[in-house]
Computed example of a mutant assay.
Amino acid sequence: MRLQQILREDPLLENELRRLLDGELTPALPADEGERIGSLLMKATASGSGRVYQAGRDQHISE
C-alpha cells in the first residue's frame, strides 16, 4: 500500500522502481521464487446475489 501511495505522489518513480526490481532484486531471489514474478490485473463485477472469487495463486473456498 505504501508503494502505491508513493507512486501516486510521484509517478516518475515507476521507471526507477521497475529498474530496481528487474535488475537488482528479482535476480537475487532463489530460482523457484524468481519464476513467480510477474504482473496480474484482475477485474470483476458481480450484481444481484452474484459472487466473484479471484486469486493470483491457490484458492480454497469452503461454503
Score class of each variant (00 low, 15 high):
1 M>G: 15
1 M>A: 15
2 R>Y: 11
2 R>N: 11
2 R>T: 09
3 L>F: 09
3 L>W: 07
3 L>H: 08
4 Q>A: 15
4 Q>W: 03
4 Q>N: 15
4 Q>Y: 04
5 Q>H: 13
5 Q>M: 11
6 I>N: 05
6 I>P: 09
6 I>H: 07
6 I>M: 13
6 I>K: 10
7 L>Q: 04
7 L>I: 13
7 L>N: 07
7 L>F: 08
7 L>T: 05
8 R>Q: 14
8 R>N: 14
8 R>P: 00
9 E>M: 05
9 E>N: 12
11 P>H: 04
11 P>R: 02
11 P>A: 06
11 P>I: 02
12 L>R: 10
12 L>S: 15
12 L>I: 03
13 L>V: 01
13 L>H: 01
13 L>F: 02
13 L>D: 02
14 E>Y: 08
15 N>Y: 08
15 N>E: 14
15 N>I: 06
16 E>A: 12
16 E>R: 13
16 E>S: 15
17 L>I: 15
18 R>D: 11
18 R>C: 07
18 R>A: 12
18 R>I: 08
19 R>E: 11
20 L>M: 12
21 L>T: 03
21 L>A: 14
21 L>E: 03
22 D>Y: 09
22 D>W: 04
22 D>S: 15
22 D>K: 10
23 G>C: 11
23 G>R: 04
23 G>I: 03
23 G>P: 12
25 L>F: 14
25 L>P: 08
25 L>V: 15
25 L>H: 01
25 L>E: 00
25 L>D: 02
26 T>N: 11
26 T>W: 10
27 P>R: 00
27 P>C: 04
27 P>L: 01
27 P>A: 04
28 A>I: 02
28 A>G: 12
28 A>V: 03
29 L>N: 03
29 L>P: 11
30 P>N: 06
30 P>L: 07
31 A>F: 14
31 A>E: 12
32 D>W: 02
32 D>Y: 05
32 D>K: 02
32 D>T: 07
33 E>D: 14
34 G>V: 07
34 G>R: 06
35 E>G: 13
35 E>C: 05
35 E>R: 11
36 R>M: 13
36 R>T: 11
36 R>A: 09
37 I>A: 12
37 I>E: 00
38 G>H: 03
38 G>M: 01
38 G>W: 03
39 S>Q: 09
40 L>A: 10
40 L>W: 05
41 L>M: 10
41 L>T: 12
42 M>C: 10
42 M>V: 11
43 K>G: 06
43 K>L: 10
44 A>R: 00
44 A>T: 02
45 T>D: 12
45 T>Y: 11
46 A>T: 06
47 S>G: 14
47 S>R: 08
47 S>M: 08
48 G>T: 00
48 G>C: 07
48 G>H: 03
48 G>F: 01
48 G>M: 00
48 G>S: 07
48 G>W: 01
48 G>Q: 02
49 S>F: 06
49 S>D: 11
50 G>R: 00
50 G>M: 04
51 R>N: 13
51 R>D: 11
51 R>I: 05
52 V>N: 10
52 V>R: 02
52 V>G: 09
52 V>D: 05
53 Y>G: 05
53 Y>Q: 03
54 Q>Y: 05
56 G>M: 00
57 R>S: 14
57 R>E: 10
58 D>T: 13
58 D>H: 03
59 Q>V: 14
59 Q>W: 01
59 Q>N: 10
59 Q>D: 06
59 Q>L: 15
60 H>W: 04
60 H>N: 09
61 I>C: 09
61 I>Q: 05
62 S>Y: 10
62 S>N: 07
62 S>G: 09
